[in-house]
Computed example of a mutant assay.
Amino acid sequence: MNFLSHYYFDRHTSNCYHVLGTVLPDLLKNADKSIILHPEKHHYPDGDTHHIYNGWLKHLEIDRHFHNSDFFKTHSHQLKLELREVISGSPVKPFFLGHIAIELILDSLLLTTGRVKADDFYDHLSSCDHQSINEFLAVSGMTEPEVFSRFFDKFRTERYLHTYADASKVAYALKRICMRIWPSPFTPEQEAAMTNVIINYRNKTSETFMEVFDEIERALV
């Protein structure tokens, strides 16, 4: 799941460090895909680092339920098939596109239906200070936490998740993710076709997308 989908499950919490923990694994991958941490191998005392750790564990649990769900398997596969038709010749693997596309579509739908507010999510992140974050990262084995700090400050300043409310921006976000691996993943024509696929698929799932959130919520109890 993407950032706002993870936030959905803790949208009522008052602890900003827990919220940070629920999205930190993905934030770290975005900051530097070579960063690999295993917090479960370390000890975090009571306080901010412990809240980050608990959020981290919840992130892993939610992803496990999501990727094992029929919803994810069905829709990522269907999106793979539909996107494969419009990216012929692209180096991007269709299964990768299908996986990421359904996660971005879910974030978009949460925003446009008012089930989460991007500003609330960003306000939580803005309340977290670097000292506690760096302490967590250092205990987890990261030797250069400033790499993450620079990315994190930019992430919470730009607040680009607001753009997901526009379905056409979802396709753009998908392209940007692909560009981390493939410098020139799509032609302009492919981008336009992908946008149509994303918009149509988002409309098609708008009435049923909450099923997977309800399923995961039951599993978390």
Rank of each mutant, 00 (worst) to 15 (best):
H99R: 08
K80F: 14
S76M: 12
L60I: 13
D63I: 15
R84Q: 12
K117M: 03
F95P: 05
H75V: 11
D46C: 03
L79H: 12
N54P: 05
D46L: 01
N68G: 01
N54G: 05
G114S: 03
R64L: 04
V116N: 02
K73D: 06
S76E: 07
V116K: 04
V92E: 03
P45S: 02
S108F: 12
H51K: 07
L81K: 12
F96K: 14
H51Q: 07
L57C: 13
H50E: 08
E85L: 11
V86Y: 12
F71V: 00
R115T: 11
I87E: 10
T49D: 00
L81A: 14
L57Q: 09
N68R: 03
S108A: 12
I62W: 08
G89F: 15
E85A: 12
H99V: 01
F66L: 05
L104A: 12
I87L: 07
K117A: 01
I102M: 10
I105E: 03
I62K: 13
Y53A: 10
E103D: 09
Y53E: 00
K58A: 01
G55K: 15
K117L: 02
Q78H: 13
V86T: 09
H51S: 07
D70K: 04
L111A: 05
P94H: 07
L106W: 15
I62C: 04
Q78F: 10
I105N: 02
Y44W: 03
H77R: 15
S90E: 04
H43F: 05
L111G: 04
D63V: 12
W56K: 10
T49V: 06
S90P: 00
H43W: 01
H51R: 05
R64K: 07
R64G: 05
